[in-house]
């Protein structure tokens, strides 16, 4: 089931200075499934936050179409099952952590009993139960992120929009937040994660989209984005038993000591390589597809240049 559907979404900001305005989103099409953790990556100014804001009705759409749970963003009911943790949020400083959750619950139209039950569950979940009665203005950045995550979960959302959720959070807190996200996904809900920490997205997300200059330039699973297409690393005792690779199979990229890296014309051609090695009685220690990090994949996609996998 698709909880979010975006078709040809365009957002142009009229600045009054630049003729034609600034195009923040340029014909974005995307679907978010339920359940999944979806990572949204892109350089600064790529349009990630604008995409969040247009989906949540915070910014008006210039053209195109989007729905959340089947409802357009300008319908307040579309936000009934949405939780949002904005980047650089500034929650009302006069409220305590508990007060913020209660106020959020009331904005969601929740009953007193539901608010009490939810706050009792969420405060320990985000590790803020000891600080619930302290004013938000006194919180550290990490504490604000934790209470921000709790308020995003207050309305029992089907989909969670998180903009830099671990910004300012300590390593233990980051792990805890990652656990919370996985738990949410396991409960059958979806999360859209916008983060500059690519290792974090890599470890948490099921699928990833890379946004650049307002356009989606790549979408796929983390495994798809981090594997070098048809490149394999073979570790074996080659000795002097080297063999040539015909063009229709692929080509050697490098051979150093016992490590051979090959670029194949087709994934299945790895069987030809293995057959050849067995025929020549070469002892094979391992054969594995070459993986790159999400960060390398991201840089390659955005810059168009290959990054050394080492």
């Amino acid at each position: 089931m698709n909880i979010v559907v975006i078709e040809d979404l365009t957002k142009i900001y009229n600045t009054g200075m630049k003729k034609g305005g600034i195009t923040a989103l340029d014909g974005v099409s995307l679907t978010i499934e339920q359940p999944e953790i979806f990572g949204l990556l892109g350089p600064n100014g790529a349009g990630k936050t604008t995409l969040f804001k247009t989906l949540l009705g915070i910014t008006q759409v210039t053209s195109g179409y989007a729905t959340i749970a089947g409802l357009p963003p300008d319908n307040p009911r579309s936000r009934k099952k949405v939780g949002y943790l904005p980047e650089n949020h500034r929650f009302p400083g006069h409220l305590t952590g508990l007060g913020l959750l209660e106020f959020t619950g009331r904005l969601f139209g929740m009953s007193r009993r539901d608010i009490d039950a939810k706050t009792e569950m969420l405060l320990p979940l985000v590790g803020m139960d000891k600080w619930a009665s302290t004013k938000i203005s006194k919180y550290s950045k990490g504490m604000q992120q934790r209470i921000g995550l709790a308020q995003a979960l207050m309305g029992d959302p089907e989909i969670l929009f998180l903009d830099e959720p671990t910004d300012g959070v300590d390593p233990v807190g980051k792990t805890e937040i990652r656990e919370v996200l996985r738990k949410i996904r396991d409960e059958g809900k979806s999360v859209i994660l916008n983060s500059h920490l690519l290792s974090e997205v890599e470890s948490a997300a099921d699928r990833v989209a890379i946004l650049s200059h307002g356009k989606i330039i790549r979408v796929g699973s983390v495994a798809e984005l981090t594997s070098r297409e048809s490149q394999y690393e073979v570790e074996a005792d080659f000795g002097d038993k080297l063999f040539d690779i015909p063009e229709e199979v692929g080509k050697k990229i490098s051979l150093f000591k016992d490590r051979l890296i090959v670029q194949l014309t087709d994934e299945k051609k790895i069987n030809w390589i293995i057959d050849q090695m067995r025929m020549k009685k070469i002892n094979i220690r391992s054969v594995k597809p070459i993986k790159i990090t999400l960060e390398q994949s991201f840089i390659e996609t955005v810059s168009g240049k290959k990054v050394d996998s080492k």
Binding site: P86, F108, G155
Partner: peptide, 8 residues
């Protein structure tokens, strides 16, 4: 963003 993302 906090206020406008609520179902109001």
């Amino acid at each position: 963003e906090y206020f406008l993302s609520k179902p109001v």
